[in-house]
Amino acid sequence: MSQVHLQPLRIDPASLGKVAVLFGGTSAEREVSIMSGTGVLQALQSAGVNAFAFDPAERPLEDLRTEGVDRCFIALHGRGGEDGTVQGALELLKIPYTGSGVMASSIAMDKIMTKRIWRFEGLPTPDWRMVSSADECVHALAVLGAPMIVKPAREGSSIGLTKVTDPAQCAAAYAAAAQHDPEVLCEQFIEGEETTCPVLIVEGHAQALPVIRIVAPGGNYDYQNKYFTDEVQYLCPSGLDADEEAEIQRQVVRAFRTLGCRGWARADVMIRQSDRQPFLLEINTSPGMTGHSLVPMSARVAGLSYEQLCVHLLASASLDSTTR
């Protein structure tokens, strides 16, 4: 599975109709969403698509119907754009959109629900505890062991995330996460290599793209390093053993299907150093499309340019009611 080569879609841009690229929004990831959406908009326009910018923080979604929009490219990240709410509104407006539907978007945004489903289906994910106080966070550290990751259950881009090694750090870590979400996830830290793997629907089937291995300075792949520095190394091809990469791709496709995702997504996977066991961390149903983003990087290795990827994704826009 690790050898992937994709052919660009042969499609008349005019057939895609009038397209709204949704970006901005009101979440903590607004800044990243603006970078993603700006890139997508420019790419679609360069490909000849009749696309325009639409920020749901500034305009009501009802304007999409009154302006005769035929489909939407969702470049929103975080709450209000990636959690099923915008998807539900577009279902009611009957405007096809990119990415997963209402249920899959909602579940994937919630890391705790995602992990419960993956665990039930036998997929490997680090052990965890949901906590509602600093004292419970201390108890989770005693159970899960150090180091431990503390993060909001429903945020992305490493927002509100802390790595703790000592009970004295738990109060501040809990407060940082709870600032963004009342549900806080304490997760066993997997010591090893960090990877990510996109999934793209190709001819109706979920196809894992090449794995990217992430080497961050000091192992600190935080919000700043993700989007605003050039210190992180992204290795694609990953340099992993072919069988190891193929196993990651297989697990990621299973993770995608288990949650009922569609269109595209990107799953983050840690490889435990001690035994090379891969562990699924989370899945992102509206991945970044910035200059530092990983799906375009992987797609490029598989043969699709940024512009071709954007057209491919836009052509896959659909509604829940038309996919069942």
Rank of each mutant, 00 (worst) to 15 (best):
G219R: 06
N225Y: 10
P152M: 04
L92S: 05
T258H: 00
I34L: 14
G239E: 09
Q277Y: 04
T125Y: 04
S105L: 03
S2I: 14
L309P: 03
V143F: 11
M148K: 01
K151D: 00
A43W: 05
R257T: 13
E82S: 04
L123C: 06
R71P: 10
V253Q: 01
P13C: 09
L92P: 00
S157W: 03
I248C: 00
I117K: 01
R116S: 06
R276D: 04
M289I: 07
G37N: 08
A206L: 01
I201D: 03
S318F: 15
T38L: 06
S318W: 15
V164E: 05
M130T: 09
F54I: 06
R71W: 14
P167S: 08
V131M: 08
Y221L: 07
E29C: 03
A57Q: 09
E191W: 13
V269S: 04
E58H: 11
R79F: 11
E121G: 00
R65Q: 14
A216H: 04
A175H: 10
A208P: 01
T38P: 04
S157R: 05
F228R: 08
D83Q: 00
G219V: 06
R119I: 11
L93N: 02
A216L: 09
S274I: 13
L281F: 09
V86F: 06
L61A: 13
I212H: 02
P296V: 14
D135E: 12
L141S: 00
K94V: 12
L294F: 15
E231V: 09
L304D: 10
I149C: 01
S316W: 09
A208R: 00
H180P: 02
D181V: 06
L64H: 08
Y97A: 02
M35W: 03
T38S: 10
A175R: 14
M113R: 09
I95P: 00
R129P: 01
P210Y: 07
P13N: 11
I190E: 02
L93F: 09
S106T: 03
Q251M: 05
E194F: 14
S15D: 07
G88N: 05
A89N: 02
L16G: 05
R10I: 15
L61T: 13
A206E: 07
L41M: 06
R250M: 04
K115R: 08
D166L: 07
G68M: 11
P60W: 12
G291N: 07
W118V: 10
F23P: 02
S46M: 10
S132A: 12
D243E: 14
S274C: 12
A43I: 04
L281Y: 09
G303I: 10
Y234V: 10
S293M: 09
M270Y: 12
M297R: 15
V164M: 08
L76H: 06
R272D: 13
E67H: 09
A142L: 03
G80E: 05
I117H: 03
P278W: 12
E231F: 11
L185D: 04
V143K: 12
